[in-house]
Structure formats: structure tokens, C-alpha cells
């Protein structure tokens, strides 16, 4: 469905992604793991066209979309749930949801999708008239996911969906990600919370300083010793110095 072919991305002089390859198949949940500043968010921005690759290609269903605008990509079925939600804080929840459907003109289908979002997120339905900026972090995450679904995406790109959420909300968010996937949407999710991400993903990639260090099925990655030690927190924690 989506492929990165030897993608190099720069911020000015800074080489962020180095000859990166990903392959995401239709119907999968694929997670991208890695520490801070390893290129996870840049990957998301490259998928969406906020950042252009210097070399290599981003390919969606056989079509090179590397030079397409974000709007064109949204029309082709990619929708983002950006890092830190990025809702429009002084617009209502309803207006935020409808911004997700910005590129669409099929009114009847938009109404259907709105119903589907209300079903997935009953809490969101209760808050429709409220300014998005006044919601709690968890509620904002729900609205951000709902907003992305309003684009009727075939590929949903989620950047750190668990960031800043309470454990109860994290669990809820990941359950809903699985539900969305079961309903037929392919999901590419960037996550710091590696355990959580691998528990729902089919496959995963591990990124370190802009390079893919490791990739495989979720169970392979969960069984990988190095990964266990570095990211999954199974190794004994070093006691804090007193």
C-alpha cells in the first residue's frame, strides 16, 4: 500500500532519514519504534508531504507521490493524526471533525462517516459544541482520530497517539486503533511506547539515528533481545543516583 524506497530527508544540512525503506501492506497495522530525534516524526511528515525527500520515493499503491502536495495525498486516502493532536483550539469539536472532511464533496458519505465517528467515540459526540482547546488530552486524541477518519482514509498515519495520556486512555486509544483497522483501514503508527505498539501491530520497524536498525513481525520484535533491552524496559532499571 505504502512504500518508502531509499528515502533521504534533510532539514537544511541535517541528514534526518538515511536511505530508509518501509513497506506497509493493505490491512496491516505497522508500528515505527525508536527513541527521541531518530526520525520518527520526520517519517510521518514525509508520508504527508510536509517534508519532501531529497532522494528516493514515497510510493502509494504503485504511484510515486513524492512530489504531490499534502492536499493531493489526503485526496488519495492518507490522513494524519499528528503528534500532539494539533486540533484547531478555538473551533468547536464538530468544526474540527468537519475539517477532516475538507477535501471531500460527497455530503451523504460524510454524514455516514460522522455517524461512524460518533459510534467509535461516544465521548466526542457529547462535546460537539465545545471548543476543542478546552478538552482533556485524552478527549483531544479522540477528536484528532475522529477528524482523521472524516477523510475516509485508506491509510491512517498516527504520530505518538499515546503521548501525554493517562494509562487508561492509552489502552482505550489502542483498542480503537485495532477497531479502526478491523473496519478496513491500514494503519502506520509511530510510537515511543514500544510494548503497547507491538501488542497491536502486525509488523514493526525500529529506527535509530535515521536508519532502519531492525524490522520484522511484532512477535519477532517482541522476542528480540537487543530491542528488549533498549526499548522494551525489560532489562533491570538502573537505580537513580542518590
Amino acid at each position: 500500500m505504502l512504500e518508502f524506497r531509499d528515502v533521504d530527508t534533510f532539514y537544511g544540512e541535517l541528514h534526518v532519514l538515511k536511505a530508509v525503506n518501509y513497506k506497509i501492506e493493505q490491512g496491516e497495522i505497522v508500528c515505527l519504534l525508536g527513541g527521541n530525534a531518530c526520525g520518527k516524526s520526520t517519517t510521518m511528515k514525509t508520508v504527508l508531504g510536509v517534508v519532501q525527500p531529497k532522494r528516493g520515493a514515497v510510493v502509494l499503491e504503485g504511484e510515486d507521490i513524492s512530489r504531490l502536495s499534502t492536499a493531493e495525498r489526503v485526496r488519495r486516502g492518507i490522513a494524519p493524526v499528528p503528534e500532539a493532536r494539533r486540533l484547531f483550539p478555538r473551533m468547536t469539536v464538530y468544526e474540527n471533525l468537519m475539517m477532516g472532511a475538507y477535501t471531500r464533496k460527497d455530503k451523504a458519505a460524510i454524514a455516514e462517516d460522522l455517524e461512524r465517528v460518533y459510534e467509535l467515540f461516544p465521548r466526542v459526540k457529547e462535546r460537539l459544541a465545545q471548543s476543542a482547546g478546552t478538552l482533556s488530552g485524552g478527549e483531544q486524541q479522540m477528536v484528532a482520530m475522529g477528524r482523521a477518519l472524516m477523510a475516509r482514509p485508506r491509510l491512517l498515519c498516527m504520530d505518538e497517539p499515546s503521548m501525554g495520556l493517562s494509562p487508561a486512555y492509552v489502552e482505550q486509544v489502542f483498542e480503537i486503533i485495532q477497531e479502526i483497522n478491523r473496519q478496513g483501514t491500514t494503519i502506520f503508527v509511530v510510537e515511543q511506547n514500544a510494548n503497547m505498539a507491538l501488542s497491536i501491530a502486525h509488523r514493526g520497524y525500529v529506527l535509530q539515528t535515521g536508519e532502519v536498525m531492525l524490522h520484522g513481525t511484532a512477535s519477532e520484535l517482541l522476542g528480540n533481545e537487543w530491542l528488549q533491552k533498549v526499548y522494551l524496559g525489560q532489562a533491570e532499571a538502573t537505580p537513580a543516583p542518590r
Binding site: R75, P82, R86, L87, F88, P89, R90, M91
Partner: peptide
């Protein structure tokens, strides 16, 4: 609405296809 959205968060608005 696109104008409001852009004023509040231009990059997010762009990601919505504005």
C-alpha cells in the same frame, strides 16, 4: 473555516488538505 483553521494552526490545516 479553512481561514480560521489556518490562523489557528497552519501546518495542521495543510495536513487536512487546506
Amino acid at each position: 473555516k479553512a481561514m480560521q483553521a489556518t490562523a489557528q494552526d497552519a501546518e495542521a490545516a495543510r495536513m487536512m488538505g487546506v
